[in-house]
Design a protein around this nucleic acid. Structure first.
Length: 657
RNA sequence: GCUGGCGUGGCACAGUCGGUAGCGCACCUCAUUGGUAGUGAGGAGGUCACGGGUUCGAUUCCCGUCGCUAGCUCCA
């Protein structure tokens, strides 16, 4: 960064450094500096007063650190404002997050009007240009200070810090907070911010603890950036699948049917049917899968065998659940459960006959409907539902085959993502067990280390970039999760490929090797393109409802100029349908401009306008989506050839003239 | 599951400081038969999510339930 001294000369500093270092370097010790640095990729001018006492204030203009310090300071200003207006509120923690910050308080929940008042108080604090000072205290004094300030949560935090921790505080006027920093040196630069919402959040993220009031805000160094952010938040609502999907008549929900149980309307069902037919044919014809169709429910005995009863009973829909302490049903009926996964069903398909090593890998695919009793607060649109259908599959293989088969599962998933046009939007996550919470998992630490190491080797050989995360594994093995973000930036798992090290033993699955001996196979659980509902949600947001032609529920609409051309339109319609094209005709007594307007609002890939000119020359006038969509007239056979090619190749772009 | 917010015809919204409701689009009918983003006229459609309570009277106030939603927790 470049520091400009009072006399106008300037000096360049590299990397992060303490204000004290700079202050020492500047002879006066108390100097006015103009610090030019990067926040949000913008060069900002953080004019501020360097105070001798600010020895712990780290000025860093690493873009990420700069953002954090800036937004974290906004969080402190929020806390200061809240304490001024609500002296009884207790402070807890308040970090910087992407594009903003939040702070959790122990206080009653807030209305929008109250948030506006807090925001106004924050503006006052910024205007007051309060210097932010930092100091450290020994443990006893730190606790005493926080007790005096009436902050029991801070005392708890201090008590939980290790013995040798440096207890630093940041003080801005009447507000002092236990905080590791760094911060800006005054409140003044935090000019452009907005409190966006408030909600509940558990103390320390634990649902056994008290629920606090969290206030979210967004903050920027430039007015334009704040405005752009607020506008962005407004605009993405239009892409939100939960809104757009309903507007485009893809799905709906009904109160009396229940939460997490969306109804696919004809257009949504058509898109899912297109994907399903594609995936089933792809897996069976090109990737060596056999297809199964197994029951949607089973006796509890099955889930006891698979260990789901112990690990996952809460998440299942259980029928006739009146079992006594001996595990016997009082009504005498079998206790049943709707299936939350397909694994044990397909295992029994495998087990129904004896397999030689020559049969392996045995790849089973199923378009499988699953039921999971998600908590009521979890359901959302099509991404978190209680009943969904997944391109499920299990691969039974020998130890020698496991690496190649795993790789081919990743290749298939990538192929699906590329075809859908979303491959560039995903990230890969290796989901490992939680070594500090071993009772949630089967097996020993040695088992997990061995299989996780094996997976890491495979992933490195594939050469994909991935992160590793503890505590995200299945109870029977580690996973490769393919993650995608929705329009709001929230991440969901789209595809998962899992290594299972325990269930073949539990289900006594085996194959006969070349020496005639029974051997345990390895199992891969996987999906190729994930769950149809969630994938549809993702595609709606990706394409804002303007689906690639091959996925569109209505690909072509014929628009006759008037009733006189209905017969010609019918002729064309018949020809299109004969070629497997999803086509309709708008034969209402409306003007052509009106029909075009409607078709555009519905984001149809193609419109065929037909009138006297077209009928006479046996052509169609083609219009595709977009501003310059008029492709002029062409012979019907030409159009059919082009669109069939577009559909066959699953093109992500539309035909040119 | 937890803490908030919200729930008015298919959709997007007004409105009622408590006296049983309106607009636009969509829908239906009639006229219009047109050339690349909205033709005109008329009509029908709502027990104001559901169930209690307060009140002479509740869509409006209170409680509960259901649903949607933000976030937290959870997600084999």
């Amino acid at each position: 960064m470049i520091i400009t001294l009072k006399d106008g000369s300037s000096k360049e500093y590299e990397g992060a450094m303490s204000v004290l270092d700079i202050a020492k370097d500047i002879s006066e010790g108390l100097a006015r500096v103009a610090c030019a640095g990067e926040v949000d990729g913008n060069v900002v001018d953080l004019r501020t007063i360097v105070d001798k006492d600010c020895s712990l204030n780290i000025l860093t203009f690493d873009a990420e650190e700069g953002k954090k310090a800036f937004r974290h300071t906004a969080a402190h200003i929020l806390a200061q404002a809240v304490k001024r207006l609500y002296p009884d509120a207790k402070c807890t923690i308040g970090p910087a997050i992407e594009d903003g910050f939040y702070y959790d308080f122990d206080m009653p929940s807030l209305s929008r009007e109250e948030l506006d008042k807090i925001e106004a108080e924050m503006k006052k604090i910024v205007k007051e240009n309060i210097a932010i000072k930092s100091f450290t205290l020994p443990r006893e004094e730190a606790i005493k200070l926080m007790e005096e300030k009436g902050e029991p949560y801070k005392v708890e935090l201090i008590n939980d810090l290790p013995e040798d921790a440096v207890l630093s505080f940041y003080e801005q006027g009447d507000f002092t907070d236990l905080c590791a920093g760094p911060h800006l040196m005054s409140t003044k630069p935090v000019k452009f911010f907005k409190l966006t919402s408030s909600s509940g959040a558990y103390w320390r993220g634990n649902s056994d603890n008290k629920m606090l009031t969290r206030i979210y805000g967004t903050a920027f160094t430039k007015k334009e950036d704040l405005e752009a952010r607020l506008e962005f938040l407004e605009n993405i609502k239009k892409r939100d699948h939960n809104k757009l999907g309903r507007d485009l008549e893809l799905f709906t929900t009904v109160d009396v049917i229940g939460q997490g149980l969306p109804l696919m309307m004809p257009k949504g069902a058509k898109i899912i049917q297109t994907m399903q037919r594609w995936i089933e044919d792809l897996e069976d014809n090109e990737w060596g899968y056999v297809r199964t169709k197994t029951p949607l429910m089973a006796k509890s005995d099955l889930y006891k065998l698979s260990d789901h009863w112990a690990h996952y009973k809460e998440g299942m829909f259980v029928l006739n659940d009146d079992e006594d302490e001996n595990g016997v049903s009082a009504s005498g009926q079998d206790i049943m459960a709707l299936r939350p996964m397909t694994c044990p069903f397909q295992y029994f398909v495998y087990k129904a006959k004896q397999h030689s090593y020559r049969d392996l890998p045995y790849r089973m695919g199923e378009t499988s409907t699953l039921f999971r009793n998600e908590d009521s607060g979890e359901m959302h649109g099509l991404t978190r539902v209680r009943q969904f259908t997944i391109s499920e599959g299990h691969l039974i293989c020998t130890p020698e085959q496991i690496a190649d088969e795993f790789k081919s599962c990743v290749s298939l998933a990538k192929y699906c993502l590329t075809t859908l046009g979303v491959e560039e939007d995903v990230t890969y996550r290796m989901s490992k067990w939680d070594p500090n919470n071993t009772e949630k998992y089967m097996g020993t630490a040695e088992d997990w280390d061995r299989v996780q190491d094996a997976m890491r080797v495979i992933l490195d050989e594939i050469g994909i970039e991935y992160t590793e995360e503890d505590g995200e594994a299945a109870f029977y093995g580690p996973k490769l999760d393919i993650q995608a973000k929705n329009v709001y930036g929230k991440e969901d798992t789209m595809i998962t490929i899992q290594l299972d090290m325990f269930l073949s033993e539990r289900f006594d699955m085996y194959y006969v090797d070349k020496n005639g001996e029974k051997k345990r196979p390895y199992i891969i659980h996987r999906t190729s393109m994930g769950c149809y509902e969630r994938t549809l949600a993702w595609l709606i947001e990706k394409y804002a409802g303007a689906f690639p032609t091959w996925l569109a529920p209505e690909q072509v609409r014929i628009l006759p100029i008037s009733e006189k051309f209905h017969a010609y339109g019918e002729e064309i319609l018949k020809e299109l349908k004969k070629n497997g094209i999803l086509a309709t005709m708008d034969d209402r007594a409306e003007k052509i401009g009106y029909k075009i307007r409607e078709a555009r609002l519905e984001k149809l890939p193609y419109m065929l306008v037909v009138g006297a000119n077209e009928e006479e020359t046996k052509t169609v006038s083609v219009r595709k989506r977009g501003e310059d969509g008029d492709l002029g007239s062409m012979e019907l056979s030409t159009f059919i050839t082009k669109i069939c090619e577009e559909i066959r190749t699953k093109s992500l772009t539309q035909m040119e003239n």
